[in-house]
Write a protein that binds this DNA or RNA. Structure first.
Length: 421
RNA sequence: GUGGGUGUAGCUCAGCUGGUUAGAGCGCCAGGUUGUGGCCCUGGAGGUCGUGGGUUCAAGUCCCAUCACUCACCCCA
């Protein structure tokens, strides 16, 4: 029979790797809790409409990257490509807008985007993120950024750059876009093909192009930061002031534009130099129009999301999973020893110890080797003699010391030993 | 969607210009002890050489296609 491989762009996380994931998740939970965010778990799939409207019809994500399917009831559903839309949907549907504002939520889980996989990019990947909904206070922007930075610090990830920008609001952005178009019009023909397309559909994105030729052509383009309305300019200045006061370093990048349509005012990205071409660890920003777009009352909000695989990649050297040490390995010989051993292992486990025993009919020697491999601190050897006498050979794997003790004492000794560290 | 690279044991790879039973290291299993680990020694299991076609007396080795992986573009997490 032909074997079936995991679908393209998906990955299995095996036990050794899973330990690092758990370490990240533990750090994440602790950090989010400190900042007062509560976890929200929303569906993995939503109505396609939610993403189409929320993220924006003209974005790459909606245009060509969604896993969309029709269910048996002929509903168009989509595997979530990001987390914000679902969180905001839940905020409205579950009437979190009637609770004291702001509502602070975090989430983590799989996201799906149909793209060609490469380093740091997969079709099923995982994001952790947080949303602070209901306040326009610039301190909330700073809090979200500080929280992300705090998580990175917590896992020893220090090698990154925080890029910051403001892309204005519906009051000031249109005027800037017009100005930008005018400025770019003369050099339009020298832009790359996709930028010529961007020029038409989403002019801001031209600034974000990585091609040398496009960067050169837009060299002298006006900066959006010079065109912000008073409110946006004030907001941005205040966010910056808070970040300065919090000691969070950043670089102003007037070319930073995000790929999703819902952003307003503050946008930011954490870039890592060790990630290769896909260098964004995470990013986010303010989305003051999204709640309304999704049918709610005008509600300001700010949030961020980061790629868990990318974090794990970037924190390769510093974030380690704990190798669960084995307290005891029960090695048995003969039928009587075996019977006693099976029961003893269970007894150790009920006593809160990690215990393992052989299921492959291994020789004692092989059992010892296995115990060593598993990092067992102690091996309890039970042969027919011990079974008859109600004793075990207690072998300390580090020192090699071995002695005969009664079963009760053995359990006691192991518990003591465990408590010591 | 476009382009480059790669596909040989569980893993990392070697197989020269096509030529007899496809190799190494690591890992795995067993033995070296009659009831004992880490080091060492010995032996063993394990491969439709990604898949399908083609060229040839002969293909892991050449050609085509296809799939997968990978890197980059695009976009972003």
């Amino acid at each position: 029979m032909a074997r079936i491989a995991a679908p393209r762009g998906t990955a299995d996380i095996l036990p050794d790797d899973a330990r690092r994931w758990q370490a990240l998740e533990n750090a994440m939970r602790d950090v989010f809790a400190r900042y007062g965010y509560g976890e929200i778990r929303t569906p993995i799939f939503e109505h396609t409409e939610l993403f189409a409207r929320g993220i924006g019809e003209d974005t790459d994500v909606v245009e060509k990257e969604m896993y969309t399917f029709e269910d048996r009831g002929e509903r168009s559903l989509t595997l979530r490509p990001e987390g914000t839309a679902g969180a905001v949907r839940a905020y409205l549907e579950r009437r979190l807008d009637t609770e004291p504002q702001p509502v602070k939520l975090w989430y983590a889980g799989p996201m799906f985007r149909y793209e060609r996989p490469q380093a740091g990019r997969a079709r099923q990947f995982h994001q952790l993120g947080a949303e602070c909904i209901g306040t326009m206070d610039p301190a909330a922007d700073a809090e979200i950024i500080a929280m992300a930075a705090s998580l990175f610090r917590r896992i020893g990830l220090a090698d990154y750059e925080l890029h910051l920008n403001s892309i204005g609001c519906p009051q000031c952005r249109p005027a800037y876009v017009r100005k930008l178009r005018e400025a770019l019009e003369p050099v339009r023909d020298s832009l790359c093909k996709s930028c010529q397309d961007r020029f038409e559909r989403n002019t801001l994105r031209v600034l974000d192009c990585k091609r040398e030729s496009c960067r050169a052509a837009t060299q002298d383009a006006p900066s959006i930061l010079d065109s912000l309305c008073e409110e946006c300019a004030d907001h941005f200045a205040t966010v910056r002031r808070y970040l300065d006061e919090l000691g969070i370093e950043y670089v102003i990048n007037p070319r930073l534009v995000r790929g999703l349509d819902y952003y307003t005012k503050t946008v930011f990205e954490f870039l890592s130099p060790v990630l290769g071409a896909q260098d964004a660890l995470g990013g986010g920003g303010r989305y003051d129009g999204l709640v309304e777009t999704l049918g709610g009352p005008p509600t300001p909000a700010v949030g961020f999301a980061a790629g868990m695989e990318r974090i794990l990649l970037a924190a390769e050297g510093t974030l380690r999973g704990e190798a669960a040490a084995l307290d005891a390995y029960v090695a048995t010989l003969g039928d009587a020893g075996r019977r006693v051993g099976v029961v003893l292992a269970e007894r150790l486990r009920r006593a809160g110890l990690r215990a393992e025993l052989d299921y492959m009919g291994r020789s004692l020697k092989a059992q010892m080797r296995q115990a060593n491999r598993l990092g067992a601190k102690t091996v309890l050897i039970i042969g027919d003699d011990e079974a008859k006498a109600g004793t075990v050979q207690l072998r300390d794997m580090e020192s090699g010391d071995e002695r005969t003790v009664g079963v009760d004492e053995a359990v006691h000794v192991l518990q003591e030993k465990r408590g010591e560290k």
